[in-house]
Amino acid sequence: MKRISKCYIGLVLAFLYAPIVVLMVYSFNSSKSRAVWQGFTFDWYRDLFSNDVIMGSLYTTLLCGVLAALVATVIGSMAAYGLGKNKKAKSALVLSVAYIPMLNAEIVTGVSLMLLFTLIGLDLGFFTMLISHITFCIPYVILAVLPKVRQLDWSLYDAAQDLGCTPMQSFWRIMFPELLPGIGTGFLLSLTMSIDDFIISFFTTGNGVSNLSITIYTMAKRGIKPEINALSTIMFTVILAILVIANVGAAKKDNKKRSMRI
């Protein structure tokens, strides 16, 4: 890379990371105010675990994320499998409807679901939020799994049956392992979308059930608690660590294959 290019990339990265670095630094600030630096402390990390509001929303966020991702992965993967062998024109119509929650403005999705729940008399809360999350996660699963279905070699499926497998066996033993990476991606994508969601949750939850985003939004009006900064620093570091480990692992594999052509 030329020097100018390097500087430019550096500047953009600085722009993307400036608020994150500031947030992490302030999670160690002993002053409650975000304006002044009063010295280093671990207090917020200690207080975090005794803060019921934050720990409660973390629990809600994770539970909702995992459940929504699970259900969306099952429905989305089945749909992708069903769509994969259809003619492109036919599946295009189904897809354009199925992708609506992904393409539509989030606020409209949130509002429309809120109207539905209110009209059919469901109390807004964890269950309604979960249904909404499943709704907007399904398209991402289809998006991740469909290419894998299109790559399937159907002669293997037939071959397995020629060799005495039942259709079910040949699906689970031959086709499913091929789809697994796509299904995994779909699950992780759903989990990420669900954990980070604010707008749709904001409209579809109620009765004091709030995920981290909503708790942060409520706090932003009165001033963010430093404990939240501490929690985000922990979460960010964990994800960073997972990515580093995963990539170092992948790089080692690559090295063995002597195919370091990045």
């Binding site: 990265l13 500031v22 947030l23 302030y26 942060i216 900064n229 979460m235």
Partner: peptide
């Protein structure tokens, strides 16, 4: 590849918090 991952990584921190952090800056 590292830089590409670095570009995506901020998305894993809650967007409200990142936006709010601009206020402190």
């Amino acid at each position: 590849l590292v830089i590409v991952i670095l570009m995506l990584l901020p998305m894993w921190m809650n967007f409200l918090l990142r936006t709010y952090s601009w206020l402190s800056i």
